[in-house]
Design a protein around this nucleic acid. Structure first.
Lengths: 212, 212
DNA sequence: GTACTCCTGCATTGTCGCAATGTAAGGGCG
DNA sequence: CGCCCTTACATTGCGACAATGCAGGAGTAC
């Protein structure tokens, strides 16, 4: 995710340096985000300097290793304001690895689908449990509480999706078995030419719809 | 997102080549995913070949430009099965750009937050409308219908989040204004040293909690 | 021949994580 | 005191993958 705007948001409170910014970020956004990688952060800071959103000032310290202080520029402040007040518009569709797994499992047959659904269900329940625990620990900060609630809502929606998936995809999964997705072998040899039999999409007719 | 497993899932139906795989993918996963970049796809195929999940066979054609056919190997088939039947476990926390925007807007003050919330609300409503339309057009395929429903559910959850955000973050936003996040100027000069006044996080005491 | 589709590859940018480096403060110990 | 070890602080570099875009060959249709 584009971290650089969030870094600018933190810098709006006053200059800071890489190591401290990591602390500020994790303090502000809460534990459900997951740790912020420090190497990534410095790359982001480099880019912000390069683009003129932030200036770097070297600060010598006697009692500690030197550090680089980063400060928001006027241009950066303006950029931040624009970003923070404009909505997030989905640029690349609804992409979720779960979707791909459902596609794969459905094509593998009903047993594979059932296995995925059951396992995924457990995972989501565990996630919700962990989030609930987090919420108890860090629920005082309003932003953190809000974000945790949002994460829980997402997970519950996902749970409902997988719960309905097995029934709704039963036909697909059953059809997949018949068309040869399951007939193993044919590992190594099978020389060129593409065996023309058993292919569901002959020349496939790529339909370009008017989106994008 | 890790596309390569999905490509393997498509190849489970039989060998294919890059351009056709793009068509198969968009056919199978539906329009809500968004277009698949062809360049990306070839990168993925290269990696699959490198890792032994897929073999490439050059196919000469008289009536068209030559093409490369890709075929799943036994190892690839096994890898596919493992991936498709194991749940997706969130590795990197709940990361949503909306969360970062809320953080940024809240720090900018109540007006910025209100602006973001209103705009985001409109965006989500428009998304839901577009998805509903899609659902009418492509709702026959069970997988596509399921994925669109999942996308709608997610968006509705997001909608609820932003709707509650303004009230729940009012205190944070108000506090932000007082602490100087809004006092403009200080663009260019302001030489080194980091003005020690007006900083909410003096040495900041990075608390490392026991996660990860 | 030129416009177009099919098909592929490369270059570039951004995201993300790990590992390595260097400085300095603090503690134990002969 | 001089030595070593650990911990905290602070930064940098490397490498993999994701994603987009552009260039271009090769054939077809006019």
């Amino acid at each position: 995710m584009p971290l650089h705007h969030a870094v600018m948001a933190l810098l709006a409170d006053g200059p800071s340096h890489g190591y401290e910014l990591k602390g500020r970020f994790e303090e502000a956004i809460g534990p459900q985000w997951g740790g912020l990688n420090i190497g990534h952060l410095y790359q982001v800071l480099d880019r912000l300097v390069r683009d003129g959103h932030v200036t770097r000032v070297h600060v010598a310290q006697s009692d500690r290793p030197d550090k680089n202080a980063y400060q928001l520029t006027g241009q950066g402040r303006q950029e931040l304001r624009e970003w923070a007040t404009s909505p997030w518009v989905r640029t690349s569709g609804f992409r979720d690895e779960l979707f791909l797994k459902l596609l794969g499992a459905a094509r593998l047959g009903p047993e594979a689908l059932a296995e995925l659904v059951a396992a995924q269900r457990e995972t989501y329940l565990a996630d919700i449990g962990a989030l609930t625990r987090l919420r108890r620990e860090r629920g005082q900060e309003p932003l953190v509480a809000l974000l945790i609630d949002a994460a829980v809502a997402h997970t519950k929606a996902d749970l409902a999706t997988v719960d309905s998936a097995e029934a709704r995809l039963a036909d697909v999964a059953h059809a997949a078995v018949m068309t040869g997705a399951e007939c193993g072998s044919m590992d190594g040899m099978e020389p060129p030419g593409i065996p023309p039999g058993r292919r569901r999409f002959p020349p496939v007719e790529v339909r370009r719809q008017s989106r994008e």
